[in-house]
């Protein structure tokens, strides 16, 4: 009698299926349940979370609208930086050429032009030679001519008794030194 009742129970155990409320069905067979009023609260929580997600998304989209975050601006900024960088390099190299020219002229004025010429690059040598030549021939000749002019002008102010001595010394200075 007991065995046949058990057999009926076994066969009927899963027969009912989901005919009743789904929560009751789970509670009846698996013993699992939810807090009271859970589904009403959960619906509100889900809708609130969705609202937050939507707001967050719209904030992110707005942030992207700020002009410096737009991709077009990034390209313009990058292009500007490259242009400024290139301009800086170009200006520096242009200044270097001027400096070199000035250096060669200064070196050619130096007394030891032969020693200075050793410090020059091959490419700069021709410019140095030109500058030295001009310096030696034109400028130094001009200077010595000016010194002779000064000599005669100064001799006018020197007393007659001293004139011989003065011209002798000055001539020696001008010609020899």
């Amino acid at each position: 009698m007991k065995n046949s009742k058990e057999n009926i129970n076994r066969k009927n155990f899963l027969e009912e299926g989901l005919k009743t409320d789904i929560s009751k069905h789970h509670k009846k067979y698996l013993g699992i349940e939810t807090p009271e009023g859970y589904f009403a609260k959960s619906k509100i929580a889900i809708l609130e979370k969705l609202k937050e997600e939507v707001q967050e998304k719209s904030i992110q989209e707005k942030k992207q609208l700020v002009f410096w975050l737009q991709p077009q601006f990034k390209y313009v900024a990058a292009a500007s930086l490259v242009f400024i960088f290139a301009l800086t390099i170009w200006l520096q190299s242009a200044n270097n050429t001027t400096v070199n020219k000035n250096n060669i002229e200064l070196l050619s004025f130096s007394d030891d032009s032969l020693i200075e010429s050793l410090l020059l690059e091959d490419s700069e040598f021709e410019a140095f030679a030109d500058a030295t030549l001009i310096n030696e021939i034109v400028i130094k000749a001009e200077l010595s001519e000016q010194k002779i002019d000064d000599l005669f002008l100064n001799s006018l102010f020197v007393e007659d008794s001293l004139i011989d001595n003065y011209t002798e010394n000055t001539f020696l200075e001008t010609i020899i030194l």
Partner: peptide
């Protein structure tokens, strides 16, 4: 979406819970 929640929230909850 509110209606969708009304219909499916409970069913999906139990599906997930297990």
């Amino acid at each position: 979406f509110g209606e969708l929640l009304d219909v499916y929230q409970e069913r999906l909850y139990w599906h997930i819970r297990k």
